[in-house]
Each structure stands twice: as structure tokens, then as C-alpha cells.
Amino acid sequence: MERKRLSRAGYIALFAAAALAAAVLSLCLGAVTVSPGELAAVVFGGQRTGTAAQILLYVRIPRTLGCLLAGAALACSGAIIQTVLANPLAAPNIIGVNSGAGVGAALCCALFPTAAAALPFASFAGAFAGVMLVLLIAERAGASRITLVLAGVAISGMFSACIDAVLTMYPDALIGYSDFRIGGMANLTVQRIAPAGWMIVFCLAAAFVFSNEMDVLALGSDTAQSLGLPVRRVRVLLLMIAAALAGAAVSFAGLLGFVGLIAPHMARRLVGSEGRFLLPACAFGGAALLTVCDILARVLFAPYELPVGIVLSLAGGPFFLWLLFRRGASHP
């Protein structure tokens, strides 16, 4: 027992180390390489002048912070949604939560172009609408796993149409629309990330606090309620946390796909499904995954840069297919 627990803690430490290493690489690599010495001078020595300092302070640090926060948020959001809907194929981008957040973000930018601080909350509202729609379908129709995913695809399509409609009427609403659509980390500033960042930190802490409730819910709604869990209330609460995490990430990173699917599956394989281990593993794993993908997006075709969403989709698409076929094989 003790050995097993240590090994799970070890995996979490490994994920944390990977996230840290990815963050350091993300700060150093790009169109212009920053040496570790220059990095240390800026981060620890307080240096604020020179090309390296300017690149780090205004480009790389906000970008890396954005990757870490969005990766952690989307991965934990995915883990929570998969548990609440009892569906391993559910992820924020697949069941329409991300695109719901996108509608919120697009509407906020169109109607209140100067209210940048409101963006994460508008995204949260959109994401929450998406996730509640899916929950309604799951509860009312008693939908099977695949039906739920297909319903999510339909909801996602409707929300995407809403985003297109908003952007057709307000073409200037979202600057860098294609980046938003694919998901990208270019042009991030600390000011833009800050409100969403605080929301993510708060929600990650809340998710961890309610990890035991999440574990009980994972036993199935009848068993969970018979153990004393107020199932409906906890479901809505956890989905609100998941929606807030996805919404906050989408508000600055755009409609990133697959982090919420890949990271929870990787983490679950290594540390199991117990929330107190799964959530930290997801947070660090998701942060590392998105940061690594962002580095690849920057260096693969340097000096040209791909939106990170493209790299993620190239990696995530085959992973999703593998998951579908693997489940199909084990559940004929």
C-alpha cells in the first residue's frame, strides 16, 4: 500500500518535473534562442534591459504562463467531465464545452469590446451552458457513451455556428480569429491572462477540495447517493468547476482541442482514478503537454509559427481514434 502510494506520488513528481522542464525550454527556445544564463539573469537577477529580457518579459513569459495554465485547466476540466458523465470519451472540446466558451468569448468581445476582465466570466457562462446541455441529454435520454459524444458533436457544431454568426455581424470582435478558432498562444500578455489565471488557480484548488466527492460519484449515481452523496448538487457543482476551468482557458488560448482528452487518460493509466492523485497528475501533465506542443509549434518551421492547436490536433486526433477502437474492441 505504502509503496504504491509513493509510486503514485512519484508519478505526480515526474509530471511536475516535466512541466517545469517544458517551461524552461519554452522560455529559452523560439525564433531567437535565449541562453540559460540570460534566463537566470532576467528571472532571478531582475534584469529588465536588453533583447533577451524584452523577449522574455513581453513574449515568452506570458506565453509560457498561458500554456501552463491552459494545459492544467483543460486537463483537469476533462478529468472532471469524464468522471461526472461516466464517459471516458468526454472532453471539453469533444462535447461542446470549449465551443460554448467560444460563444461566450465572441459575444463578450462583440458587445463589450473594452471589458477584457469580463472575458473569462463570459467564457465560463458559455462553457457552463454547453456542459449543462450535455448533462441534460445524458440524464433525460439515458444516453449511451457514443450517443453522448455524438450529441456533444452536434452541440459543438451549433455553438460553432453561433460563433461564426457573431463574427459575421461583428467582424472585428476577435482579433486573430483563426488563432482563436484553432487555439493559439501568440500575442498573449500578462494583463490578458491574469483574470483567467486567478480563476484557474481558484478552480483547481476547488476541484482538489471536492476530489473525494468526485471519487464517490465515479461509483455510479445510485451507489453514490446510497453512500450519502447529494448527487445532483455535486454533479452541478463539479460541472461548474469544469466549465470555469475550460472557459478561463478558452478566453485567452482559444478553442484548444484534445488536452482535456489526452492528459486525463495518460494520468489515469499511471496514477489510477483516485481524485487526490488524478487531479494533480492531470494539472502537471496537461501543463507539460500543452507547453511541449507549443514549443514544437514554434520551432518546427521556425521562423514561421504554427498555432499550437494544429500540433495538438495532429497528436490528439490519432489518440482519440485509438481510444475509440480500443474501447470498441473491449466492448463489442
Binding site: 500500500m1 461509483l219 446510497s226 452523496l229 489510477g272
Partner: peptide, 25 residues
Amino acid sequence: APAQIARKAAYLAQSRPVPSIEARR
């Protein structure tokens, strides 16, 4: 409330998911 019921009656359900956790947990 569910917790009050859970202190009076336990339930062994017919079908249950199998989570990846230790038996003691």
C-alpha cells in the same frame, strides 16, 4: 437527506462501474 438515509440503509447495487482505486479506499 442522502447522508441521513445512508446512515440507516446500505445498498449493494446490481451493476457498478469498477474504478481504478485500491480496495481499501
